[in-house]
Design a protein around this nucleic acid. Sequence first.
DNA 1: ACAAAGTAAGTAAATGTTCATTTACTTACC
DNA 2: GGTAAGTAAATGAACATTTACTTACTTTGT
Lengths: 198, 198
Amino acid sequence: MRPKSLEKEEAIRSVALQIIAAEGLENLSMQKLAKAANISPRTIYLKYENKEDFLVKLFIDEVLGAYEAAVLLNFSEDMEFAEGVKLIWKNTFQYFKNNQHAFSLMQYGKSSPLLNNAYREKNIQEGQYFSPIRLFLKSHVRAGLIPKLPNQALRAMLFAPLFDLVNEYFEHTDRPKQVITAKVLTECCEAVIKGMIK
Amino acid sequence: MRPKSLEKEEAIRSVALQIIAAEGLENLSMQKLAKAANISPRTIYLKYENKEDFLVKLFIDEVLGAYEAAVLLNFSEDMEFAEGVKLIWKNTFQYFKNNQHAFSLMQYGKSSPLLNNAYREKNIQEGQYFSPIRLFLKSHVRAGLIPKLPNQALRAMLFAPLFDLVNEYFEHTDRPKQVITAKVLTECCEAVIKGMIK
DNA sequence: ACAAAGTAAGTAAATGTTCATTTACTTACC
DNA sequence: GGTAAGTAAATGAACATTTACTTACTTTGT
């Protein structure tokens, strides 16, 4: 029996992320993807049911899953508050810096209804998606260190600015001067922490 | 000479925003739009050069422009810091609460290369896009009230969480209980302000 | 009467997806 | 150790449909 080529699977996914980053999700077609990945269109359908199935799996596995793994590196839910937040900032920035294409599709997760639903379903089904962070926040709320707010509100406060900063970082990669420096990131992270602590 | 019908123009734009919000930008086609707006496809092309031209104008006029006008209502660049930030939060939330469809396309502005470029170009060309807010921030940096950070970083810190909260608000409109209440918004806004002030 | 606004029906090209077939590898026998 | 059968992987050409956009005509308001 002829074995499955992992390269092809890999190529499909990475080329798809490239196209999405360069031309947008709305300009990714299955035929264009196949041509760019040097495979037959049919091959994609051996691995995925249809375009929707492909996009959702790409988003969940390659973007959400990989990001979750990266962001939780060395993280523990019983870390000190400032320490934990700083680590998440550091991990997030480092990960996306090295995976710009994943970041592009991540952004689409907030726009596209398809991906948005996929995210919500994963969140509901698995229940424990990003659960270490949720528990981390919960325990610091209980301890009275940070205000009692809905989990999503806490996450918005702590991490939404970071995503905008990463976005801004990428907008400056092809310009003379990078404005999102390590110092800026540190200062921003500290401001966010200061704002949260009661 | 027969005058252009403003209703049709209006219908095209509002129906487009609806489709984008419901099915995503990647699922908006000119034919679908024409059918949904009860006009001939050709009519769209009487008003816009092509699809790209249409999308960019929709984004710039209907989303960015309208949002700018709404957010700057009663705003003045020489407001007190906390007062100014709170007003922007209030205006932003109010506007999007009443214009959910515009919010959807706004989110695409951060993903889609097409819209992203359009935004950047408008920002560069007009130079003074959202300029009252820029001047407002600049003056408070000068006064030493908030740290000297790049404009985009300041904006990320102050407003990125707000957009996530609006998004979260919409995710709860069809659920039993709204978690993003006025109280939550106020608390978040105050935390953001506290974090920024040196 | 005129000229622009608007339309229905069309175009070629591109879309998502499938068919019938070929390729490349494993395995079992001589 | 060579080889041929067996099998899943992979393919290129095709499918019906949809795409962005036009053509040729009708309607409308002055």
